[in-house]
Simulated assay, not measured.
Amino acid sequence: MSNSSDSVDLLLEGLTLDSDHLLPVFLLLLFAYIFVLFSNFCMCFLIISERSLHQPMYLLYLNLSTNDILGNTTVMPRLLYDMLRPPALRHIHLYGCVVQAFLAILFNTTGYTILMIMAFDRYVAICLPLRYSALMNARMLVRLMVWAWGVAFVFVGVLIGLTLRLSMCRSLVSGLYCNNASLFKLSCESTYINNVYGLFFTVVLFSSSIGSVVLTYTKITVACLTSKSASLNRKALQTCSTHLLSYLVFLCSGLLIITFHRFPQLTQERKFITIMYHLLPSGLNPLIYGVQSKEVRRGFRGMVSKIITVKQK
């Protein structure tokens, strides 16, 4: 955005509550954010430190946890900080707003691309078990991870780039935090190109995400129904249920935000749905994988026993 952006300060709308609800909501969000950080950092440390978890599925989950930490840290500290300040003092520099918008959208996009790759990994493991080691080797895994982050980076970069070309005539950033829509709404120019690309971006992301998951799980279901192997069906149920549950939580949270945007009068409700979109999937994922996966539970018990042994010495 032009108009001497070197000295542009914007005003964040943020979350405004009455004095009776401010402290309880602040503490609730603070503890939820701490839980998200703690649980995902624990999962990352566990996967990195335990050799038994150096498998494609868990290394992909490592990317998902990293993305959850990034996405929540982009939004929550600033949101909590602004809750303790009066609305008139919630200033943010334009460059800081752009960085926050970029990282927030990157979190959203990368979440879908990683879950798409995890669906492909489950398909290969269930439907092509004899070729799994050859197909999901280290080189392929690196390529898939680079693709997940690279595609998201390019698409989001173009999205933000189209917004930065606009001149700015307003200073109030609507919503909880900076995002692409709140940025281009600061301009008085035509945002037709931004709206078209934004719609294209959303359609491609959701259609490719839903399409890939439906396709892979359809093939997995067919393979399980036509197979007489009880061990295959048990493996499919155990490994696929965790991924599918994580995907559905993330997808439904995103669809709720889109739905609430069609009701402008529900501003406060939309803000809380947006907060839950960041906190809920990120907080549930470690629990889902920790409870369902025997390898994760075994690794966690081993890590706890090592800590106890070190303390006893």
Score class of each variant (00 low, 15 high):
152 A>S: 15
149 W>Y: 15
96 G>Q: 06
105 I>N: 05
211 G>D: 06
108 N>L: 10
40 N>L: 02
112 Y>T: 07
207 S>M: 05
80 L>M: 11
260 F>R: 00
190 S>T: 10
6 D>N: 13
142 V>W: 03
273 I>A: 06
288 I>F: 13
158 V>F: 13
131 R>Y: 10
128 L>W: 08
250 F>W: 12
186 L>D: 00
202 T>A: 13
19 S>A: 14
236 A>W: 03
221 T>G: 06
205 L>S: 13
170 R>T: 03
261 H>Y: 14
78 R>W: 11
309 T>H: 13
80 L>R: 06
110 T>K: 01
109 T>C: 10
15 L>V: 04
120 F>Q: 02
214 V>S: 05
54 H>C: 12
90 R>C: 02
63 N>V: 04
123 Y>C: 04
217 Y>A: 01
178 C>H: 00
224 C>Q: 07
189 E>Q: 15
180 N>P: 03
227 S>Q: 03
174 S>M: 14
64 L>R: 00
71 G>D: 05
114 I>A: 05
228 K>F: 11
204 V>Q: 09
204 V>I: 15
202 T>N: 10
72 N>L: 06
43 M>Y: 02
76 M>F: 12
25 V>H: 03
226 T>M: 10
205 L>A: 11
207 S>W: 03
280 L>E: 03
18 D>I: 04
305 S>I: 06
198 G>C: 05
180 N>H: 13
5 S>T: 14
291 V>F: 14
67 N>C: 15
208 S>G: 12
20 D>G: 09
259 T>A: 14
277 Y>L: 13
122 R>V: 00
94 L>V: 10
67 N>L: 08
263 F>E: 09
112 Y>Q: 09
83 M>F: 05
289 Y>V: 12
27 L>Y: 11
288 I>T: 08
181 A>W: 14
